[in-house]
Design a protein around this nucleic acid. Structure first.
Lengths: 93, 93
DNA sequence: TATATATTTAGACAAATGTCTAAATACTCT
DNA sequence: AGAGTATTTAGACATTTGTCTAAATATATA
């Protein structure tokens, strides 16, 4: 959970997520969208992978990244839980 | 949006949110739940306030903090948008 | 007014983070 | 095997972040 929030706390990583939302992309394709170096992008991708936000598969010399959308479910639940202030005797408290 | 994600990226701040979910609390009450110093808690509260996650009102010598739950709506929307991969010709793309 | 309490501000400091370049690794194709 | 391409790893470095103590501010009350 902490890794997930940390991962989303950086604008570049959120942009990467928005890119992958449209289609799977290789590390190089992703890097081409940014003005920072490929190693830096590689590092961001690593953090996203650690947070389970993206998955990667190696295809020949390329590494293709894709969104793992299921991880967001847990986050939506947390955030919605927070926006639902605790009441006396609600279902789950 | 960035401030919001940043704010939630720290475990102490998320714990503060969970406390305020139960009831409004003064800065001192909040601080009592943690083993870190009051100035540090004050700083966390400041970041949460900047991110619009909490509101504060001064009541005499106390400052009472409360959750601003509306800010989470925007976040839920973002996260749900991300978990909903782009399709051809869906409603909003 | 003086003292105690609640909170924030200021400034220092170590650790974490985001970035870079250079080098290493892995794969493709002559 | 050798050269070119894709990606990651290693290590350095500046900035940001989370923490602390000391001091400042604001309020309450004797």
């Amino acid at each position: 959970m902490n890794l997930l929030f940390k991962a989303l706390g950086d604008p570049t990583r959120r942009q990467i997520i928005e890119l992958l939302r449209k289609r799977d992309m290789t590390a190089g394709e992703i890097a081409d969208y940014f003005s920072i170096s490929k190693p830096s992008i590689s590092h961001h991708l690593d953090l996203l992978r650690q947070a389970n936000v993206v998955m990667s598969i190696k295809e020949g010399q390329f590494v293709t990244y894709s969104l793992n959308t299921t991880v967001f479910d847990e986050m939506v639940k947390w955030v919605m839980d927070m926006s639902d202030k605790k009441e006396k005797k609600s279902k789950k408290n």
